[in-house]
Computed example of a mutant assay.
Amino acid sequence: MPTVAPLDLEGHVVAAHFLGDTPFFATAAGEIRRLDGGEKVTEAHNGLLTCVKDPFSAALLTGGEDGKVMRIAGDGTATQIAEAPRKWINVVAGGPQGAVAYAHGKSSVVVLADGSAKEFAEERTVEALAFAPKGLRIAAARYNGVSLHWVNTQLPAADLDWKGAHTGVTFSPDGRFLVTTMQENALHGWKLDGKAGEARHMRMTGYPSKVKSYSWSPKGKWLATSGAPAAIVWPFSAKDGPMGKAPLELGTRANILATCVAFHPVEEVLAIGFIDGMILGVRVGDGKEALLRRPGKGAITSMSWSSNGKLIAFGSEAGDCGVIDISA
C-alpha cells in the first residue's frame, strides 16, 4: 500500500511540482514551500497566480498579482525574469534555449536567455501560452482560436480559428498536434503536419464539466484529461490523432468528478485526482487501479511525479497536500 506524508498549508495550493526528487508547493499567498531535508520557504510573490514547471529546464516559473515573472531553481533561489507593473500575470510558459513567455491583456511576451524581449500583439486577451517542443515557436490561446508565432522571425502569425473561448493550450510531444481546452465542456485540436487543404480540426466533446487538467503520456501516445467522472484519455498515436476514435475512460467513479490528471514520467500509468480528494493510479494497458490516497478535505487541483517515478506530490483547494510514496 502506498504511504502518504501529509502537509497542511494555509489556503489554496496553486500547484504541486517536483524538481528532480524534491517536492515544491506553491500557495496563492505567494510562498514556494519545498520539502528538502525539512520544510523550506521562498517568498516569491505578493499574491501568486500561476506556477508551472519549465519543461526545458530544472526550474519552476511563476507569475503574480505583483506583475512579476520569477524563475525558482531547485535550491529555492528566486530570480526575476520580467516585470509588468500594475498587471496581473496569470499566464507563463517555459521554452527551449532558456526562453520564458508570459502574457497580460492582449500581449504575449517572450524573454530570451540574453534578457531581450519580443512582444506579440493579439486581437483578444491571451488565456494560455505553450512553446512547441522544437524550434522557438509559441502558441497563444485566445477567444476564437490560437495564434502561432515564430519568435525569431518577422513572419506574421499563423491563425488557427475555431469559434469560442480557448482557455488552455498544449502541443503534443512530437509537435504534430495542438490541443486547446475550451470554456465550453470540450477540447479542440488541430493537426499541424497535414497537407494544404486537409481537414485539420479535431473536436473532442461530450464532457459533463470543463476540462481544467490534461497530461500527455511519456511518448505522446495518449492525452489524459479531467472533466468527467473518470479520466478521459484520447489516442494520438495514429496519423490523424483521435479523429474517428473513442477515448478510454479510466478510474470511473459514479458522479464523482476527476479534477486532475498526471502521467508517470516513463510508464503508461496515470494518476487521477478527484473532487473529493481521492487519488487513483491506473494502468492504461489493462485499466488496473490502485488506491493511492483516500478522500480528503478538498478537490485535487495539482499533481506531479518525481523524476524517479516513485513519488507523487499533490495539492488541493483546501490546502491539504502531501507526497505519496508508491514504492512503499
Rank of each mutant, 00 (worst) to 15 (best):
G105S: 09
A132N: 03
S108I: 07
L35V: 15
A140E: 00
I81A: 05
G95A: 05
S116A: 11
L136S: 02
G145F: 04
P85F: 00
G94M: 07
I89H: 03
G64L: 09
P96F: 05
A44L: 03
G47Y: 07
A26G: 09
L129Y: 04
G20M: 11
L49Q: 11
G64C: 08
G67H: 06
E65A: 13
F18L: 07
V41L: 14
K40V: 06
G76E: 07
Y102S: 01
A103Q: 02
G115S: 11
P96Y: 01
G20Y: 06
L49G: 06
K87V: 01
A99R: 13
L19S: 08
H17E: 15
K87P: 00
G98S: 11
S116G: 09
P55K: 05
T62D: 10
A130N: 08
K106V: 09
N46C: 08
E43S: 14
A26W: 04
T125S: 12
G105M: 07
R71C: 06
G94E: 05
V41P: 04
R124L: 12
D21F: 03
A28V: 12
P96Q: 09
K40H: 13
E123G: 14
W88H: 14
R137E: 14
E31L: 14
P96L: 15
A44R: 04
P55A: 05
P55I: 06
E119T: 15
A99S: 14
V69N: 04
